[in-house]
Design a protein around this nucleic acid. Structure first.
Ligand SMILES: [Mn+2]
Ligand SMILES: [Mn+2]
Ligand SMILES: [Mn+2]
Ligand SMILES: [Mn+2]
Lengths: 221, 221
DNA sequence: ATTAAAAGTTAGACAAATCTAACTTTATTT
DNA sequence: AAATAAAGTTAGATTTGTCTAACTTTTAAT
């Protein structure tokens, strides 16, 4: 059985897209920053995970999750998202407050519990932030969402999720009364500071590039 | 913040009735057996908990939980029992299967979560095994339950709980179709092997002394 | 092509929670 | 009271995950 720490390393590796064959392999440096430990700690842990056949790497070489490591990581993400869904849908938590608690709950060891919770939640496919919930078998429904940052001006889109679920961003969305499911239009770009105008329910809002890049959308036909 | 290990020590000390002023102070030997560690490990941990003002003890002397230690322990028990209630009432777990998972869930750190869960469960006062759930403030409703082992023959009683929530005992009760709330009568005792006859819904059952001592009951007037 | 910067690695140390083995104190027998 | 057993303590070792500080390799800049 994996320790919570080992699980966290695997999860972050998957979030960084470190699956086998994925070109944009990320540095252990960034992993260290993200996990808020020193690079040497990351190095020590990677050796340990390699020993357990969960990652693959050679000194000064490329780093990858093995299939086994990826599967483990996916299950942790599944648990994280199911718990977040529970907290919001059942316990009526604000969507900005659930991530921290889910960081703890994702390490509870009981496959049976997750099956029961999944059923109780009526088999949700996305979490409160619009992130897909993998199946029991570890499969993600393939999704067509794109970043609002990649959308042409004057296209109608539906917001389906957020990239980063930081409280500051989520609370900002709440303040603007923008929720998942909202239909918006990216109506203008201000070259000077790369800011944008978006239209939402008759109102026009003015937001930053960072803001629009943080939203997942799908075009509405 | 306390580690899970520290929390487990405190919880077990409370279960052993080690509150200040309680005469039946238990030995660290028994604590070691229960926690499945060596006596020396217990000794090390007790020193640490003493340092943190959670227990009080001198070498070769009596051992007690401080008020602070007791409060912490009560909160852990509260969390354990609320989670068990959630698992049975909401996720439809069998009452024999929840203890193990609650052992993990009791260590999740979020007072807000427990308040929300408490509300979601409609403020339960007892867990699925009939054990009282302390309030937010750490108070146990004082209870009149007594052991079925201490009941006179031919008294009608209502089963309100079980002492040990081991799967073997709980599954045995399921097999006998005896649930919490059942009205039974202790109808006869066999001197030879200290076994008993109990009446339950027209049927007469034959059970051991260990069995009846494991049930909490209240007399029905 | 050198040099400088960044990234990655190693050795040695530390705190937490555990252990074994030896020792001391207290309790129980005879 | 002396001997034996049980309980409790201590010292020193181990494992996990981290650190610092020094070192090596790779990448970027001049
Ligand atoms: Mn999250
Ligand atoms: Mn999420
Ligand atoms: Mn329990
Ligand atoms: Mn219980």
């Amino acid at each position: 059985m994996l320790s919570q720490t080992e699980e966290n390393y695997l999860k972050h590796l998957l979030h960084f897209g470190m699956q086998e064959g994925n070109a944009k392999g990320i540095s252990s440096r960034q992993l260290a920053d993200k996990l808020e430990v020193k690079a040497s700690s990351v190095n020590d842990m990677l050796k340990k995970l390699k020993e357990k056949n969960l990652v693959q790497f050679e000194p000064y070489g490329k780093l990858f999750l093995t299939t086994e490591g990826e599967q483990k990581a996916v299950q942790i993400i599944r648990k994280h998202r199911l718990w977040e869904t529970f907290l919001v849908n059942k316990l009526k938590f604000n969507w900005a407050d659930v991530h921290e608690i889910a960081e703890q709950l994702e390490h509870i060891q009981s496959a049976h519990l997750m099956d029961k919770l999944d059923e109780f939640l009526d088999f949700p496919t996305v979490d409160p932030h619009g992130d897909p919930i993998p199946t029991r078998e570890g499969l993600f429904k393939d999704d067509q969402r794109i970043s609002l940052g990649d959308v042409e001006l004057n296209t109608l889109v539906k917001i389906v999720g957020v990239k980063e679920d930081s409280p500051s961003f989520l609370n900002y969305l709440d303040k603007l009364k923008i929720q998942i499911g909202a239909i918006i239009e990216l109506s203008a770009k201000e070259e000077f500071d790369e800011s944008y105008q978006i239209k939402h329910e008759e109102k026009t809002l003015h937001v930053s590039q960072k803001f629009i890049e943080n939203l997942w959308v799908i075009p509405t036909s």
